[in-house]
């Protein structure tokens, strides 16, 4: 990471970010509203748990798993659905142990080293969201929170070009690095302006107006906006 995204490394260093939690973007709306909750606490609140942690789903865990091993967190964020269906992308949430120590926690050893946090982690403790490079702008806009740094990170474990040998020496695979750079140039699943236009051209006026009114009423009824729009 120091080689690929030095800015992310700087942010982690400056903000004392040393604990991580990997998840999927689909969990972000709820996290930004309620903070991080354990599987059990979310279930008690009646919230459906949407992401990862098969272990938690089967057995239920009354804690949030965080780790100081960035690779483990990346592994969790990279868990993907099999077949042709994909969720947009993973995220790694960065926190500081300086904050987490105020919450009830305990070190546990499962198949990896984890820190079990028994209280819910409030949103104020989230200091960083690491996402794929081309999603930084999207997530920044989505959270609109200057206190949380949104930074780029390679979250696809298959594209990692570095590793460690038995003596903990950093090794860089030139072949994997070239492959990764070529892959960046390849077209990914990206929706462009023409795709959106093609979709929009197939709609009809009353459907669009109905949706406009639905969204406007929803914003008014939530009492957070007056819903006025000059385009009306």
């Amino acid at each position: 990471m120091l080689a690929t995204y030095p800015e992310t490394f700087d942010i982690m260093n400056k903000n004392h970010i040393d604990l991580f939690h990997g998840t999927k973007i689909s969990a972000l709306p709820t996290i930004m509203r309620d903070g991080l909750g354990s599987f059990d606490s979310l279930r008690q609140k009646g919230t459906t748990v949407l992401t990862g942690e098969e272990y938690s789903r089967k057995r239920g865990r009354p804690f949030i798993s965080v780790t100081n091993d960035l690779d483990t967190a990346i592994d969790y964020s990279s868990l993907s659905v099999s077949g042709q269906k994909v969720q947009p992308f993973g995220i790694v949430i960065g926190m500081s142990s300086e904050d987490i120590k105020h919450l009830r926690h305990r070190s546990i050893k499962t198949d990896c080293i984890e820190l079990a946090v028994f209280d819910n982690i409030p949103i104020e403790y989230i200091k960083m969201l690491a996402v794929p490079e081309d999603k930084v702008e999207f997530v920044r806009k989505l959270i609109n929170n200057e206190r949380i740094a949104v930074t780029p990170m390679e979250l696809d474990v298959n594209k990692r070009f570095y590793g460690w040998d038995d003596l903990d020496q950093l090794i860089i695979s030139e072949e994997a690095y070239i492959e990764r750079m070529n892959d960046k140039k390849e077209s990914k699943l990206t929706i462009g302006k023409d795709d959106m236009k093609e979709l929009a051209e197939g709609r009809h006026k009353s459907g669009i107006l109905r949706m406009y009114n639905k969204i406007k009423n929803m914003i008014i009824s939530r009492g957070k906006d007056n819903g006025k729009d000059s385009r009306e």
């Binding site: 709820t30 042709q84 989505l142 957070k224």
Partner: peptide, 22 residues
């Protein structure tokens, strides 16, 4: 931001087919 606030109440997960156009 508003889309995300409203989406926070949703319990659905949505997927995209890799090889299909929008």
């Amino acid at each position: 931001r508003k889309l995300m606030e409203i989406a926070a109440d949703s319990e659905e997960s949505y997927y995209i087919e890799k090889n299909k156009k929008l």
